[in-house]
Amino acid sequence: MLKKVIAIIKVIATKFAIAFFFASLFFCIFYFVFKEDIDLIFGLASKITIKVNEASDTPLTFDSVKMRLAKYPNYGTVWAHIIIPDIDIDIKVYQGDNLELIKYGAGHFIGSYFPGEGGTVVIDAHNSVYHFGKLPQLEVGAQIIIDADYGKFTYEITSTNILKAEELNVMPIQDDAEILMLYTCYPTSGFGYKYRRYVVYAKLVGADYEK
């Protein structure tokens, strides 16, 4: 009797495993074929269910004497748009870069400087084509614009790199020169955990605090 039960359980488990396998395989193929459409649908859905702050509670102002923001945006607040014309990107920049936030746009790493403050500005985003998935297509010299509440800042790409995740600190946050650092998981396609990061470094070439 027990043997029969075990045999039945084994058969059922095997059927389930096979069903899972084919379902997963189908899902993987479906996702691979329709990746861009799925990203778009999830992107639209996230706009409906978004719970983060879409705008700063109070407008940000820049202290031109201290060369610092007078007050900083709250966590989860949108304080800028990042625009990369060469890859047709225009997405929101949130304060903070944990996974909850970067579902909706790019995230500003807490501890890094803000545009115009003269230090390292670190911004990261997912590697979908609607976020930073097309960063590898950018060439040295391409422009990146950060349109913030308090000013418009234009950067020019100086170099790119592919680093292991734990090597991102190779260029520590510093305040000697204004450098914009963008990164995303790399490679930008394929399955499984991505251990590398595609990094873009850019220098400030224009700042308009008046907008």
Binding site: H126, N127, F191
Partner: peptide, 22 residues
């Protein structure tokens, strides 16, 4: 220091399940 910026987390799970199936 850094967040995981891969958007295909669901796919990773699916491929893991597929691997189990194999």
């Amino acid at each position: 220091d850094v967040e995981y910026t891969d958007s295909a987390i669901v796919i990773s799970l699916a491929s893991a399940i597929a691997l189990c199936g194999i």
